Computed example of a mutant assay.
Amino acid sequence: MAERVNQETFQKEVLEADGLVLADFYSDSCVPCKRLAPVLAELEETYGDALKVVKVNINFDLPLAEKCEVTAAPTLIFFKNGAEQDRRRGLVKKAELTEIVENLK
Protein backbone atom coordinates (compact mmCIF):
# COMPACT_ATOMS: atom_id res chain seq x y z
CA MET A 1 0.00 0.00 0.00
CA ALA A 2 1.26 3.45 -0.92
CA GLU A 3 2.89 5.36 1.90
CA ARG A 4 1.64 8.85 2.67
CA VAL A 5 4.47 11.36 2.74
CA ASN A 6 4.50 15.03 3.68
CA GLN A 7 6.83 17.99 3.61
CA GLU A 8 8.91 16.56 6.48
CA THR A 9 9.36 13.07 4.93
CA PHE A 10 9.40 13.85 1.18
CA GLN A 11 13.15 14.48 1.04
CA LYS A 12 14.04 11.13 2.61
CA GLU A 13 11.29 8.98 1.09
CA VAL A 14 11.39 10.38 -2.46
CA LEU A 15 14.40 12.54 -3.23
CA GLU A 16 16.93 10.40 -1.36
CA ALA A 17 15.36 7.06 -2.36
CA ASP A 18 17.25 4.66 -4.58
CA GLY A 19 15.40 3.58 -7.68
CA LEU A 20 12.02 4.55 -9.05
CA VAL A 21 9.43 6.42 -6.97
CA LEU A 22 5.97 7.45 -8.15
CA ALA A 23 4.57 10.38 -6.17
CA ASP A 24 0.79 10.71 -6.40
CA PHE A 25 -0.32 14.25 -5.57
CA TYR A 26 -4.02 13.86 -4.77
CA SER A 27 -7.01 15.34 -2.98
CA ASP A 28 -9.59 13.42 -0.93
CA SER A 29 -12.44 15.19 -2.74
CA CYS A 30 -11.07 14.43 -6.23
CA VAL A 31 -13.06 11.76 -8.09
CA PRO A 32 -10.32 11.00 -10.65
CA CYS A 33 -7.90 10.59 -7.74
CA LYS A 34 -10.17 7.97 -6.19
CA ARG A 35 -10.44 6.13 -9.50
CA LEU A 36 -6.66 6.17 -9.90
CA ALA A 37 -5.90 4.76 -6.43
CA PRO A 38 -6.60 1.07 -7.26
CA VAL A 39 -4.57 1.37 -10.48
CA LEU A 40 -1.58 2.63 -8.50
CA ALA A 41 -2.04 -0.19 -5.98
CA GLU A 42 -1.96 -2.71 -8.84
CA LEU A 43 1.24 -1.17 -10.21
CA GLU A 44 2.85 -1.29 -6.80
CA GLU A 45 1.90 -4.96 -6.44
CA THR A 46 3.09 -5.83 -9.96
CA TYR A 47 6.50 -4.17 -9.68
CA GLY A 48 7.23 -4.84 -6.01
CA ASP A 49 10.62 -3.45 -5.00
CA ALA A 50 11.22 -1.96 -8.47
CA LEU A 51 8.61 0.77 -7.85
CA LYS A 52 7.82 2.68 -4.69
CA VAL A 53 4.48 4.53 -4.66
CA VAL A 54 3.92 7.43 -2.27
CA LYS A 55 0.93 9.73 -1.83
CA VAL A 56 0.93 13.46 -1.10
CA ASN A 57 -2.35 15.05 -0.04
CA ILE A 58 -2.28 18.50 -1.63
CA ASN A 59 -4.86 19.83 0.85
CA PHE A 60 -2.60 19.14 3.84
CA ASP A 61 0.74 19.67 2.11
CA LEU A 62 0.12 22.65 -0.15
CA PRO A 63 3.65 24.07 0.30
CA LEU A 64 5.10 20.76 -0.93
CA ALA A 65 2.70 20.69 -3.88
CA GLU A 66 3.70 24.26 -4.75
CA LYS A 67 7.39 23.38 -4.46
CA CYS A 68 6.84 20.53 -6.93
CA GLU A 69 4.81 22.85 -9.18
CA VAL A 70 1.66 20.74 -8.87
CA THR A 71 -1.32 22.72 -10.15
CA ALA A 72 -3.96 19.98 -10.48
CA ALA A 73 -4.99 16.73 -8.86
CA PRO A 74 -4.16 14.06 -9.62
CA THR A 75 -0.62 14.75 -10.67
CA LEU A 76 1.77 11.81 -10.90
CA ILE A 77 5.50 12.52 -10.80
CA PHE A 78 8.05 9.79 -11.44
CA PHE A 79 11.39 10.25 -9.69
CA LYS A 80 14.46 8.09 -10.27
CA ASN A 81 17.30 8.44 -7.79
CA GLY A 82 15.82 11.78 -6.69
CA ALA A 83 15.45 13.38 -10.13
CA GLU A 84 12.11 13.97 -11.83
CA GLN A 85 11.82 11.77 -14.91
CA ASP A 86 8.19 12.12 -16.01
CA ARG A 87 4.97 13.85 -15.00
CA ARG A 88 1.33 13.16 -15.84
CA ARG A 89 -1.81 15.06 -14.88
CA GLY A 90 -5.35 13.76 -14.64
CA LEU A 91 -6.71 10.24 -14.86
CA VAL A 92 -4.01 8.19 -16.59
CA LYS A 93 -4.63 4.70 -17.97
CA LYS A 94 -2.79 1.76 -16.44
CA ALA A 95 -1.21 0.88 -19.80
CA GLU A 96 0.36 4.34 -20.03
CA LEU A 97 1.70 4.13 -16.49
CA THR A 98 3.06 0.63 -17.12
CA GLU A 99 4.89 1.88 -20.21
CA ILE A 100 6.48 4.70 -18.21
CA VAL A 101 7.59 2.32 -15.45
CA GLU A 102 9.03 -0.14 -17.98
CA ASN A 103 11.02 2.66 -19.64
CA LEU A 104 12.34 4.06 -16.35
CA LYS A 105 13.08 1.03 -14.20
Rank of each mutant, 00 (worst) to 15 (best):
residue 64 L to A: 05
residue 28 D to R: 14
residue 23 A to G: 11
residue 57 N to E: 00
residue 64 L to M: 01
residue 83 A to R: 14
residue 89 R to C: 14
residue 11 Q to E: 13
residue 28 D to N: 15
residue 91 L to R: 05
residue 66 E to N: 10
residue 69 E to A: 13
residue 53 V to F: 01
residue 38 P to D: 03
residue 74 P to T: 08
residue 59 N to C: 02
residue 63 P to Q: 01
residue 12 K to E: 14
residue 96 E to W: 04
residue 77 I to H: 05
residue 64 L to E: 01
residue 30 C to N: 05
residue 51 L to E: 02
residue 43 L to P: 05
residue 48 G to E: 07
residue 35 R to Q: 15
residue 5 V to T: 03
residue 60 F to W: 02
residue 10 F to H: 07
residue 3 E to W: 04
residue 77 I to N: 06
residue 96 E to G: 03
residue 88 R to I: 00
residue 18 D to W: 00
residue 50 A to F: 02
residue 59 N to A: 10
residue 22 L to Q: 09
residue 15 L to D: 04
residue 93 K to I: 05
residue 4 R to W: 09
residue 90 G to Q: 09
residue 10 F to M: 09
residue 29 S to P: 03
residue 37 A to Y: 10
residue 1 M to H: 14
residue 54 V to N: 11
residue 94 K to N: 10
residue 97 L to T: 06
residue 59 N to K: 10
residue 50 A to K: 15
residue 39 V to Q: 04
residue 104 L to I: 10
residue 81 N to R: 01
residue 87 R to T: 11
residue 79 F to N: 08
residue 22 L to K: 09
residue 83 A to S: 15
residue 42 E to F: 03
residue 87 R to P: 09
residue 97 L to F: 07
residue 27 S to W: 06
residue 99 E to T: 14
residue 82 G to C: 08
residue 59 N to P: 01
residue 5 V to Y: 02
residue 44 E to D: 14
residue 73 A to E: 04
residue 71 T to I: 12
residue 16 E to P: 03
residue 44 E to A: 15
residue 79 F to K: 04
residue 27 S to R: 13
residue 18 D to I: 05
residue 34 K to T: 07
residue 10 F to I: 07
residue 19 G to H: 03
residue 3 E to F: 06
residue 34 K to I: 13
residue 44 E to M: 08
residue 97 L to I: 02
residue 84 E to D: 06
residue 75 T to D: 07
residue 77 I to Q: 09
residue 9 T to H: 09
residue 76 L to P: 08
residue 49 D to R: 10
residue 87 R to V: 11
residue 51 L to D: 02
residue 27 S to Y: 03
residue 27 S to E: 09
residue 38 P to H: 06
residue 11 Q to K: 14
residue 3 E to P: 02
residue 15 L to Q: 15
residue 26 Y to W: 15
residue 56 V to W: 01
residue 32 P to C: 06
residue 29 S to T: 15
residue 102 E to R: 11
residue 34 K to D: 03
residue 88 R to C: 05
residue 30 C to E: 03
residue 89 R to E: 15
residue 70 V to S: 00
residue 87 R to G: 10
residue 76 L to W: 03
residue 23 A to R: 03
residue 9 T to E: 04
residue 48 G to H: 04
residue 76 L to Q: 09
residue 56 V to A: 09
residue 61 D to E: 12
residue 2 A to Y: 04
residue 16 E to T: 10
residue 104 L to G: 08
residue 68 C to W: 12
residue 24 D to F: 00
residue 67 K to T: 15
residue 73 A to Q: 07
residue 83 A to M: 12
residue 61 D to C: 00
residue 55 K to M: 02
residue 103 N to L: 13
residue 10 F to P: 06
residue 99 E to Y: 01
residue 83 A to G: 10
residue 64 L to C: 08
residue 88 R to T: 07
residue 100 I to S: 13
residue 67 K to D: 11
residue 12 K to G: 07
residue 90 G to A: 03
residue 41 A to K: 12
residue 34 K to A: 14
